[in-house]
Write a protein that binds this DNA or RNA. Structure first.
Lengths: 337, 337
DNA sequence: CGCGTTTACGTCGTTCGTAACGATA
DNA sequence: TATCGTTACGAACGACGTAAACGCG
């Protein structure tokens, strides 16, 4: 059993049991992977994959168990390499971040700029995706960091660092009937109009849907998108009332759009940075997380991310206290803390 | 970086930085280890050990970090092998148990006999040692299982499975003055006589010493031993009053020794089985644990030992409910449960 | 001078890539 | 016939062991 064999094994599993494709990803030849896989199977006396004829059909139960542990080994080996590079104060490398559109477009840019300034030789790769895809990428160790948000705590198999809290706001064209209502819009009034929001709003488990359901209301989702800019476009086109993250609001949006805070209608969201517990992060990765959230002191991050310690993270700040707001009164939350 | 290189690395660390000795332990030659170590250091760009001249002097801070992760990788690799053997229903192998004398002599024999009956081809190795040595052996992955006891919960870096609870009892020669006192002996009375107990009683943090200290008493420990049989011998020789585990009492001891329960004087002890969280156990290892403690159902053990789950172990039974007692009334604890 | 490490060297095993073959849809 | 996996073979590399040299106490 060698680390290479295990790397090949998970590559095959991650390539959907296509050895040729797996070989490309690990920069090796297909016969090489075939042979190493066979040798591993011979040594362990187990079939990792069930075959039909010559091609791989499915992962066997035994194979799944081995692959799970192989991932850990590969991850630890990567961690040792990262550790060495940290200790050598290597300032170059790759930072692979998977995140949703809103975060990538409105939240990350300042942190990335700061990172590039301090670590000019670090290449940053942003991979967009929905929540499920982000978790999958992280699980496959294809990325170093996933940044996503939600109202509940994310899966316990990863370490979730709270970055900041935020609220949703609604937007509509200036002449929209709802804009006559004043500041205290209710869920019932919202349900009267077609809505435009994120793709995740389609899921019945989304906090949006659950909030309406709790009030016995059935909202009409006229249009969804992952992209906040698209949501704005459709709102401007008159398709409905937009519900989106406050981070996505730009100063110029106020010119032709009516904005309303609905802090009390929908639960507060939290943006999390997710990392694998068995993965040691490069210094510039910690620097990036710290740049995202001022409450996460860089020198304390290594201890906070230690999987043996109870995850004791400082409470996240609220977005409005971090970047302010152009359309609502400044946060009243700072008084509470 | 190969698994072999990492194995050599920790072998050198565990052999006290003596490469020759490490080579013997891993059944390889000394130049081989030397070279692999050098290659690993070159690849990572780090010195694992500080040298003085040609010989290794100390583990560098960087080296300690790498070794810690290397242990995890080796352990995971061993786990994969164990997993494969389990799935192949391999009924042979080695079971290495480190434990204290009392457990090995009075507690384990029935469980070992049962195990040998079910798995005749499994070789069982018992390694005696003090508590600190057991933890060290487990940390070095030299053993599969450590069985030890104490009044508080053991280190969180291992999974501790509660096996059973037990009490200490005191013993003295029939003609000893304390035997006149009757059933309700006090700590103060005990402190009047020289005591004979386990080696661990020497430590000020021992529950024995703390119990006396809490009553402002300063006991005289006349003689200590790891071996319960030795303690009995010295008690018979008149060196003092013995304080030892109830499991160590044999029926024939009542012939010439006076025994007394002191359940209320000293805290209840718990015997634990300690395993590494990153180590998958062989089937016969689980069978052994289950044979030790009837409340630990064998088929539920894999889930209970899963490090990702919260350690939810059933409450341990009391020794008297497991094996009874020849010298005290049957446990009154069974009523409580 | 013994102990322990490094260097040198020869052998063997292993890995890897190329190329041809086989099977499948 | 295109795609994918296996087999075969040769070259190169790497690991390992033996033997000798080197430093140190």
């Amino acid at each position: 059993m060698t680390i290479t064999q295990l790397r090949y094994l998970v590559a095959i599993a991650d390539a959907g049991l296509n050895i040729t494709q797996a070989a490309e990803r690990v920069y090796a030849t297909q016969p090489g992977l075939s042979k190493q896989l066979r040798q591993l199977e011979d040594e362990l006396g187990l079939q990792m994959f069930s075959r039909s004829g010559r091609s791989l059909e499915a992962v066997t139960p035994a194979g799944a168990l081995v692959i799970e542990r192989a991932r850990k080994i590969i991850s630890e080996a990567e961690s040792i390499r990262a550790l060495a590079e940290n200790l050598r104060h290597e300032a170059s490398g790759e930072l692979r971040i998977a995140t949703t559109h809103t975060q990538a477009r409105f939240v990350l840019p300042p942190a990335i700029a700061r990172l590039k300034q301090e670590f000019p030789d670090v290449n940053i790769h942003l991979m967009p995706g929905g929540d499920a895809e982000l978790l999958e990428l992280l699980h496959r160790d294809d990325i170093d960091l996933a940044i996503m948000s939600g109202t509940s705590t994310p899966p316990a198999s990863f370490i979730a660092v709270p970055i900041f809290d935020w609220e949703r706001i609604i937007m509509m064209p200036k002449q929209h009937p709802l804009s006559e209502v004043g500041d205290n819009i209710t869920l019932a009034q919202l349900a009267d109009y077609p809505l435009v929001s994120y793709e995740s709003a389609l899921s019945p488990e989304s906090s949006l849907r659950r909030a309406f359901a709790a009030a016995d209301l059935n909202p009409r989702i006229a249009c969804t998108a992952r992209d906040a800019d698209l949501i704005k476009t459709y709102v401007r086109a008159g398709l409905g009332v937009g519900i989106l993250a406050e981070m996505a609001i730009l100063p110029e949006d106020q010119a032709d759009l009516e904005l309303r805070c609905i802090d009390q209608l929908l639960p507060t969201c939290t943006t999390w940075a997710l990392v694998r517990p068995d993965r040691l992060l490069r210094d510039f990765n910690l620097a990036f997380i710290s740049a995202l959230a001022p409450q996460l002191e860089r020198r304390k991050l290594p201890r906070m991310l230690n999987p043996d310690e109870p995850d004791q993270f400082p409470a996240p700040l609220h977005w409005r206290d971090l970047r302010g707001s152009v359309y609502c009164q400044q946060s009243t939350r700072s008084e509470a803390s």
